[in-house]
Design a protein around this nucleic acid. Structure first.
Length: 475
RNA sequence: GGCCCCAUCGUCUAGCCUGGUCCAGGACACCACGCUUUCAAUGUGGUAACUCGGGUUCAAAUCCCGAUGGGGCUACCA
């Protein structure tokens, strides 16, 4: 059996986004599942759209999620001679021709075709040019492109996901292969490279399906065996359109910055269009490699569902070692200047343990735990009141708690020791909420937080006493 | 406009190939209850879908045709 070889071929026009990452993932999973190779090729043939730094972004993104490419990275921009040579070969064999038409003329032709209800195709007027005319134009340095001659007939191919697909060649435009700047278009470079690099399976997004016949024709012209094709469904925005920046689609590194875990992203993305056929939901990369199969890939597009990503991410956060989670949390706390002096790892660790179950993403640690680091609490005094408590009752209870706290020695200032005392106090007023709610708000300043005694233990006696005092002063 | 692809709960999906076991299963979200001092986590339960219309068949979510809807492509972008 020939070696399985797939590739991810992004163009460096911006961030690596979710859709692209999933394409990379499926290629990677398929290759690894079949003991094959997965390679990375940078399709940087569009000089106008090239964005500085995006190759680095793509590379760090892939590295972050654990997708490793085999072999060297190929840059198409360094291979223009190869593409040019093949374009010339096609031209010499009358499988392609030079076209000198201007963009204006081209647009006009297309417009007229559409008006007539025809496919928007070029009318091949440059195919009529005589040898002399062509030579003269070249001599005069007239810019030209090289176009593929689409033959008559039909082009059929078998897609691994969509089965048989058929196009009538009449509908297909004479594709530009070589641009007037000497760079190849995707179609030419892609086919040549896939062949030269012995790619066995082309797994790419569905948006490429309509141009596949052009590629097949190219393979035929060159006398090469085409690879297998698998056109995977697209990742959609909530409005079902192609996911783009317009929808606030984030780059992979932005997910990283927000505190999503790479394992969660991978797990989530794998399930966007694929699933193992049973009820399991949580999969590691290794498990995905073992289970992945291209024929279980969905045909229809999948909407990117942030809620589910959050859930999966929460699952992974809960499974993380506390040490590791502490390491991940610290940069966020630092960045927001919540940690100003030196880091007290022990202190942060206690907080992280407390918040672990609550985090959807690591960055949540900031808004969930800011009160552990702040001196001043800011909250509405009415928040201190449990149900229909009045000022007087509230003041009494806070003073009572304060009194109780002062009677507890510092070493006994733990949840374990404090709980029975406060519970018995609560029993006197007949409602746990009357004691615990005001205390919790006084300590955290929030309407939602971990339990007051867990907080108290971490904050320590002195700080708790101060916060109670501040609360009482407000009433 | 032309061509292509697709179509199961709000979302991701199982089931479809090999029709009956499906008054359609799971997950997220949502709702309720339990735990409980709030939030979370967790447990239990619940609401919720085969786009429509024709065939084929004893029987169709599953096969066929059509309609409708959605998406993509239609660049000297990828």
């Amino acid at each position: 059996m020939p070696t399985i070889k797939t590739r991810f071929a992004p163009s460096p026009t911006g961030d690596l986004h979710i859709g692209g990452l999933r394409t990379a993932l499926y290629n990677y999973l398929f290759a690894k599942k079949n003991n094959g190779k997965f390679i990375l090729r940078i399709e940087d043939t569009d000089r106008a759209r090239f964005k500085e730094g995006s190759v680095e972004t793509i590379l760090t993104g892939l590295k972050w999620v654990g997708i490793k490419a085999d072999g060297k990275i190929v840059y198409q921009s360094s291979r223009t001679d190869i593409y040019k040579k093949y374009a010339e070969q096609l031209t010499a064999e009358n499988k392609a021709y030079r076209c000198f038409c201007s963009v204006e003329i081209l647009n006009k032709i297309r417009e007229e075709q559409v008006k007539k209800g025809n496919p928007a195709k070029y009318d091949r007027r440059c195919l009529e040019l005589s040898k002399e005319e062509i030579e003269e134009k070249i001599k005069k340095n007239n810019p030209y492109v090289v176009r593929l001659i689409i033959p008559d007939g039909k082009t059929k191919f078998k897609d691994l996901i969509r089965e048989n697909v058929e196009f009538n060649n009449k509908e297909i435009d004479d594709q530009v292969l070589l641009k007037s700047d000497g760079y190849p278009t995707y179609h030419l470079a892609n086919v040549i490279d896939d062949h030269l690099m012995k790619i066995s399976h082309v797994i790419r997004a569905e948006e490429w399906l309509p141009s596949t016949p052009k590629h097949i024709i190219l393979y035929e012209y060159f006398g090469w065996k085409p690879p297998e094709f698998a056109h995977i469904p697209m990742v959609l925005a909530p409005d079902k359109s192609k996911l783009s920046k317009r929808h606030g689609a984030m780059g992979v590194l932005e997910f990283k910055n927000q505190g999503y875990l790479p394992e969660a992203i991978i797990n989530f993305l794998a399930f966007l269009g694929w699933n193992p056929g049973d009820n399991r939901e949580i999969f590691s990369m290794q498990e995905l490699i073992e289970e992945f199969s291209i024929d279980k890939v969905q045909k229809g597009g999948a909407i990117f569902n942030m809620e589910k990503l959050n859930w999966i991410n929460g699952q992974y956060i809960r499974r993380l070692d506390t040490d590791k989670l502490v390491e991940l949390c610290i940069p966020y706390l630092k960045k927001t200047k919540l940690i100003t002096t030196k880091i007290n790892k022990e202190y942060v660790e206690k907080i992280v343990v407390l918040q672990k179950d609550r985090l959807k993403k690591v960055s949540d640690i900031i808004e969930f735990s800011d009160f552990f680091f702040k001196e001043k609490m800011e909250y509405d005094k009415d928040l201190l009141k449990w149900k229909n408590m009045d000022d007087r009752e509230l003041k009494n209870i806070l003073e009572k708690i304060s009194e109780i706290f002062s009677g507890v020695p510092e070493k006994d200032f733990t949840k374990e020791k404090l709980e029975p005392i406060l519970k018995s106090e609560a029993a006197k007023v007949g409602d746990n909420g009357k004691v615990f709610w005001p205390l919790r708000v006084a300590l955290s300043g929030k309407k939602a937080s971990p339990g007051p005694l867990e907080i108290a233990e971490i904050l320590g006696k002195e700080m708790c006493t101060r916060r109670l005092k501040m609360a009482i002063k407000q009433i």
